[in-house]
Design a protein around this nucleic acid. Structure first.
Lengths: 135, 135
DNA sequence: TTCCTTGCAAACGATTTGCATTGGA
DNA sequence: TCCAATGCAAATCGTTTGCAAGGAA
């Protein structure tokens, strides 16, 4: 993963390492502000720059919810999964599907992309709902 | 649909009607700025307010992509459908699935929500890809 | 006539950027 | 050593809001 940055002539500094470690421990995508709250020593602007670099290097993936952009470790590093988003509080939680369901989802995705003429390179199922805490 | 607003003590004015008509003609969700470009006479702030009111009344549904919020006519009025999003230019296009695929998608959604403990009230499959123009 | 809606401008929150300084390979 | 990364402050972008004036029921 470090090579992923090195190849692009970029450095894996302590600040960047801290952001990656934090995202690795999280159980859902995090917004820049949320990361900054947990990593007070790293200024917000550096977190934004780090997330941009990591995204371009394919290490993290952005995810848009209710006006804020949250990032998480990319699928190829953390494993493929989906999200449930709480319509009340905005909480996002990861869900991993059993292989058979993932397979039938893949069939649906193929259908969608062929019907639209888009070249698809990924998919994410976003389920809207109400989280246990808000119910 | 007009009643939907009337019941809430709100009015279906010419500006609001224009926004709804425009969204009805669009073949994908539109952002406030995009609507404003097509409806120059309506000030941006009124468009934002109109979209908020229409959302609360359940007439339109918000959709978050690459940092901007786009709105489209709600499923119960326009029919249930999904989106393909272009990773290059951000274009969003609607896709309607045949019943059998929609049924298998529903099974997957059930699995996701039961696994997460969320009470699910809707779903949207977001397929990321590259649109014909950007290929 | 009564409220709701509109317009405009100012306020806001999230994200980006310029520039001098620091630090990693 | 050299070039990329950092810190800070100012700028930008999408979106929201206060308030006085206009318009629908």
């Amino acid at each position: 993963m470090a090579e992923r940055l090195a190849v692009r002539g970029e450095r894996l500094t302590s600040g960047r390492r801290a952001v990656v470690r934090l995202l690795g421990r999280a159980d859902g995508p995090l917004a820049a502000a949320e990361i900054h709250r947990l990593l007070e020593s790293v200024p917000l602007s550096s977190i934004y720059r780090t997330l941009t670099v990591l995204h371009e290097a394919g290490v993290v993936a952005p995810h848009h919810t209710s006006g804020v952009t949250r990032y998480e470790i990319a699928d190829w590093l953390a494993g493929h999964h989906h999200h449930v988003v709480c319509g009340e509080c905005g909480a996002v939680s990861d869900v991993v599907l059993p292989d058979d369901l993932e397979a039938s989802l893949e069939i649906v995705v193929e259908a969608v992309s062929s019907q639209s003429g888009f070249l698809h390179d990924g998919h994410s199922l976003e389920v809207e709902g109400t989280c246990p805490a808000c119910q």
